[in-house]
Amino acid sequence: MPTRSDVWLAAGLVVASAFAALLAGSGPPYRPTDALGLVFAVVAASSLLWRSTAPVSVTAVTGTAVILNAAAGYPPTVVQWPAWIAVFTVFATYGRGLRLAGALLTLAALAGYVVFDRGDVTTSELFSITMCFLISMVAGEATRARRFWAEASQARLMAEERTRLARELHDALGHAVNVMVMQAGVGRRVFADNPEFAQEALGHIETVGRDALGELDRLLRVMHSDDDDTPPDLGELAARVRAAGRDMRLTTAEVDLAPGAARAVHRIIQEAVTNALRHTENGRIDVDLAQVGDTVVLEVANEGRHLPAPTPGRGLVNMRERARLEGGRFEAGPVDGGFLVRATLPARGKP
């Protein structure tokens, strides 16, 4: 079925063509405008009803109308408009093969016009026809390229959104699962000697699990932006780590960060602490957050001996990507007696 825009285009062009044919008239050597001349103009314009659904067929119909109009002795003043619109549509819609077919059909129509036209086709007219042909092709090609660029941009945005969601799930749920595993292990080891502590560990496991489910639900419902999210409390994170049996020192000063950067800082802290819990069994975890001039500096260090050699994984990749997206820098690696994660982000208002 014709699209609504094509219906309006065809209807408007039918009316315009009929009025133009009647008002412009024609003189020798052309045949005066009569009912047959109006039929050619109306048929050519009406074929644009299927401009979007079958542009190559419309090109053939409009080209045929141009040839028959010339053979009948009418001037090409009105009947040529739909033909140029059809050429533009073919080049704006299809690939190389059908564009070539549309160009050949148009060239055949132009050749028929030159052969059957009653007037003398001058060099100036041939130049005008050639320019109309080239302008229709170039405009159609530009429209097609712009549409492909828009589609590619949309696909890229969707891929970035999927990556962002995957990163959020990895950071939030990965941390929760690691804390639950640590607390379960501690509770199992002390269950016989200290049942009260084991009971407390089970309570923490339930709380962390509920929070993880809430985080998952939030991520699935709110995927468009993090700007309105308030970063979770770092004190709560420290309490969970201590409940898992690890010593954690949290030193934070007042910093001036945009909401997105603040959430990125929290996620980097969360992921760095998760890695510390995963790769070491003891030792203190130190988190330092401060602002130096117009730069916010975050350092997460964990003590531990005989750490395994770090291997590239999603955790470090996610942390580095979060810092990069906020205009900051990220570095991580083993240091004397442990492992250090360091991120620097621009404060609010800094370009």
Rank of each mutant, 00 (worst) to 15 (best):
112 G>D: 02
312 P>H: 08
102 G>K: 00
212 A>N: 13
246 R>V: 08
125 E>H: 03
122 T>F: 10
308 P>D: 14
251 T>E: 14
179 V>G: 02
224 H>C: 00
81 W>S: 07
350 K>Y: 14
7 V>H: 02
91 F>C: 08
176 A>V: 04
151 E>M: 10
73 G>H: 01
100 L>N: 03
311 T>P: 01
214 G>L: 13
62 T>C: 05
317 V>I: 08
209 G>I: 07
26 S>H: 10
4 R>F: 09
321 E>T: 11
80 Q>I: 07
180 M>F: 07
245 G>H: 12
143 T>A: 15
29 P>G: 09
154 Q>P: 00
253 A>Y: 08
132 C>W: 07
126 L>Q: 05
29 P>N: 05
195 P>T: 08
263 R>S: 02
98 L>N: 03
218 R>N: 12
32 P>G: 10
239 A>D: 15
155 A>E: 04
321 E>S: 11
347 A>E: 13
316 L>M: 05
136 S>R: 01
212 A>S: 13
277 L>C: 10
278 R>F: 13
97 G>V: 11
280 T>F: 04
40 F>N: 03
20 A>E: 11
280 T>W: 07
216 L>F: 13
283 G>H: 10
31 R>T: 12
243 A>F: 15
152 A>T: 10
57 S>K: 04
153 S>A: 13
22 L>D: 05
93 T>C: 08
264 A>T: 11
